[in-house]
Computed example of a mutant assay.
Amino acid sequence: MKVALLLVLVGLAMAASMALGIVQIPLRTVWNALWLFDGSQEHLIVRTVRLPRALIAGLVGAALAVAGCLMQGLTRNGLAGPELFGINYGAALACVIASFVLGTTSLEVFSWSAFLGAGAAGGLILLLGSIGRSAWSPVRLVLAGATLNLLLASITQGILILNEQSLDTMRYWLAGSLTGRDLALFLFVLPYMAVGLLAAFALGGHMNIIRLGEEMAQGLGQRVKWMKALCILIIVLLAGGAAAIAGPIGFVGLAIPHLARALVGLDYRWALPCSALLGALLLVAADIGARFVLPGQEVPAGVVTAFFGAPFLLYLVQRKGGTT
């Protein structure tokens, strides 16, 4: 029942996303643009600008929320999110290097660069997490991710400081924005993120076992190391795809899993789909709000999610101390 209600809310939010903006479009016109397209200006706005943007916001929000839910289960840390594994800054560094070396402003080039950078960061986490006697432990994964994140962030900021042109080109993308994205970019990341989402949902029962602890999971026949490696690969697909198309949007992967568990409990078979729907709902709503924060212009959606996510993070630290 709760999942069905969330599906309805996501649908309503996407309809509102296609109707609201600098140009207000009635819902009836939105419907006609989708099913009875006549080539008018309002129909073109819906078809070519707002529909792709709503779809991208929903997909990115769902991917980030599911990635965050997996990370919190994998590390047993309630403060874990896609940012923790360095995936966001891996994507950002690759884009900054592409801008610095190639001098490009193409969103297609940024998307490919971001996806490759996210994949490289995930590969490093797999390598660092598998070294030593305490390989694959939650603490080792968190430390490896946090260290890599700081390193990549420092390199990224260093390049931006040294090259003003790259800073001007990248600063809007680095804030996490959905502006200017089209259906081609959506179709570019859709296969990867769809595979990641379906694989994550299929792992719900296994995540319930891993949540009991490594010794208990191994006693129940779970191949813990392989499951952790698979989870990291799924996280790279989801968070890397999200960063490739929208830039590094923060706090969605941190906050949404907590809300999902509050709604449906600790069973990951329900928490993961619920996280996907809540993440989609949050980011679509944030994108709508980003159009009205400043009169006559838009702010990046990542700014809106950070505005509401930062107080939530402080609340979690005070209430739980970062544990699940």
Rank of each mutant, 00 (worst) to 15 (best):
A4D: 04
G11W: 07
A13Q: 03
G21Q: 11
I22D: 14
I22S: 15
Q24R: 13
L27I: 13
R28A: 15
W31I: 06
R47K: 15
P52I: 02
P52G: 03
A54T: 00
V60E: 00
M71D: 02
Y89E: 10
L93A: 07
I97M: 07
I97S: 01
V101D: 05
L102D: 02
G103Y: 08
F110S: 00
W112P: 00
W112I: 12
F115K: 02
A118M: 10
L124C: 12
G129I: 12
L141E: 11
V142M: 14
L150K: 11
L152G: 03
L152S: 03
A153R: 04
S154Y: 12
T156E: 08
G158K: 07
G158Y: 11
I159T: 07
I159P: 00
N163C: 12
E164A: 12
A175H: 03
S177R: 00
L187E: 13
L187Q: 15
F188N: 11
F201M: 14
R211A: 15
G213E: 08
E215V: 07
E215T: 14
Q222Y: 08
L230G: 13
I234Y: 04
A239F: 07
L254G: 01
I256R: 09
V264M: 08
R269G: 13
L272G: 04
L278A: 04
L281F: 13
L282D: 00
A286Q: 06
A286I: 02
D287I: 07
G289Y: 08
V293Q: 09
G296V: 09
V304W: 00
T323Y: 13
